[in-house]
Design a protein around this nucleic acid. Sequence first.
DNA 1: CAAGTTACTTGTAAAATGCAAGTTAAGTTA
DNA 2: TAACTTAACTTGCATTTTACAAGTAACTTG
Lengths: 151, 151
Amino acid sequence: MPAKRHAKRRSECPLNASVEMLGDRWSLLIIRDMMLRGFRTYKEFLECYEGIATNILADRLRKLVAYGIVTTELDPSDGRKVIYLLTEKGIDLAPVLTEMVLWAAAHEDTGNQALVRQMQKDKTQFLAGVRKRWAKQVVPPERKRSGSETA
Amino acid sequence: MPAKRHAKRRSECPLNASVEMLGDRWSLLIIRDMMLRGFRTYKEFLECYEGIATNILADRLRKLVAYGIVTTELDPSDGRKVIYLLTEKGIDLAPVLTEMVLWAAAHEDTGNQALVRQMQKDKTQFLAGVRKRWAKQVVPPERKRSGSETA
DNA sequence: CAAGTTACTTGTAAAATGCAAGTTAAGTTA
DNA sequence: TAACTTAACTTGCATTTTACAAGTAACTTG
């Protein structure tokens, strides 16, 4: 169900719509951290490998919520915490992330080969896994479990 | 064949690599114009719907060439013209573009439904088409043919 | 209740972007 | 062949975005 058109887009092109929402240096990394690493709080995002600045993080989260890609709820057991979750629309970005990972892995010298191999082996199954882990009443998978990182 | 790692990336993550190369408001639109609309000269890119500024266009083309996504050659029949072409690496972005288009089409109110339906109907065939049209000694398809735009 | 945590905001410097106006080399026209 | 046009940029400057450092308010913990 398409959302109503954002105020003033530069064009009607669907690719442009995606680029206007996601075309910056941080948004997709935040989504990656939610989708693949199970991050859900501000503090966790702040500690991402790439080192996002706190004001930029706040701004990006605000925009992702405004776009309907992310929702928030309050942590019932800790009044300080805000929990950030992917919406359906956000989960539907999994194929985009996957193709971007596979493209970079094919053409650049990058790390996290475990994830890449998993995606290469069976893309469909990988996407099903993401979808399943994010099915309503999410319990983000394998957080804090020691061993190889997921992203 | 992976390229050697770019000077200083923020992290080893393949998604981050993609974002560092393509995560801005213009790069993917330029690639779209090459891939889907058959654009190949500076002037054509300048006239894109979204209205890129000339200095930004020059900068993005320079970067895309540096990343190995685009190459240039001189037009043998007009010494003023520079011809920009997608490399294999650039053509391999087709699945990324496709997923971004399908995502936006599914969740936003966008135009160019012809392209979207074509992608939805048979993604594999669509990608094969792009690949075929860009096979060595490219003659970009259907440029200047009247009727519905391709992108 | 004092000391931490969490999720931010504010201020400011640095970098990226956008806009208008050149510039240069090559091609076209009268 | 001189004047004009075109293609691909560059330059200068104002505006916007990003980055970095330092707060702050609400809440929890010991």
